[in-house]
């Protein structure tokens, strides 16, 4: 149902674009737009989920309790220290090779390349974002935390109400860069059979061997990068405004 809606939407977009599009683009337009939609979908979901996970990770890392900080540190280190492509292939081909017999109920999840792609993107981006947030936190005046705790706030409340909001503001430009990197990294999920923008592009190229196919994809990605940049700077401007008031 949702799928049909998306297909109808992209057919509509292509019908709208058809007067201005060249022969190559017209023929494969629905594929590009379908793929573009998948890329945007994954980007929105993975950035939101990744941000939430990053906050939990950074709380774990700063908590001062080894039970929490160790696993969080190891996870962040592993995901920042290896290529995204390796992570994708470990989870999709590696863990996936155990199949329904080996994975039991988890198979419903691992069976689906889209879900696997989302999971790996979330884990990967959360590792980088938690590092960015940590950088913001360590630059804050430690006295603030002490002050908050002395008026009776718990550590977690002080983090949530006082420390993290400031760290996010400080880290926002770096977070914006990470969003663009996440978008670019998402192109790799085409290697695990997801037909995102890159997957559709490679399929089209496999049929026509026309390099312009890749240039069309480049235009779409650049548009997306532009949208992200504008979003990041609009939020940034709001931050600076609210600081003045």
């Amino acid at each position: 149902m949702y799928q049909d809606l998306k297909f109808a939407a992209s057919d509509g977009v292509c019908a709208g674009l058809s007067p201005v599009s060249g022969a190559l683009f017209k023929k494969f337009c629905p594929r590009f737009i379908d793929g573009f939609a998948v890329t945007i979908e994954l980007l929105v979901l993975s950035s939101i989920l990744g941000f939430l996970l990053a906050v939990s990770l950074v709380l774990g890392r700063m908590s001062g309790r080894a039970v929490l900080s160790w696993p969080a540190n190891v996870l962040v280190y592993c995901f920042r220290g290896t290529p995204l492509l390796v992570q994708l292939w470990i989870v999709y081909f590696g863990i996936g090779s155990f199949g329904a017999d080996g994975l039991g109920a988890l198979w419903v999840f691992f069976k689906n390349p889209w879900a696997v792609g989302l999971l790996v993107l979330v884990l990967n981006t959360s590792a980088y974002v938690s590092e960015i947030l940590r950088g913001g936190l360590v630059n804050l005046d430690k006295g603030q935390m002490e002050a908050a705790q002395s008026v009776g706030m718990s550590w977690l409340t002080a983090m949530r109400r006082i420390m993290l909001p400031q760290a996010i503001r400080i880290a926002w430009p770096a977070y914006g860069n990470e969003l663009v990197l996440l978008m670019k990294g998402s192109a790799l999920i085409s290697t695990i059979t997801v037909l995102d923008l890159m997957g559709q592009t490679r399929t089209v190229f496999a049929r026509n061997f026309d390099l312009n196919t890749y240039l069309y994809a480049a235009v779409f990605y650049l548009i997306l990068a532009g949208i992200i940049t504008v979003f990041v700077s609009v939020v940034q401007r709001n931050f600076s405004k609210s600081r003045l008031s």
């Binding site: 670019k184 998402s186 192109a187 890159m198 990605y221 650049l222 990068a225």
Partner: peptide, 8 residues
């Protein structure tokens, strides 16, 4: 260059 996926 910075707006395009490295893979592409």
């Amino acid at each position: 260059i910075r707006g395009m996926p490295e893979f592409l």
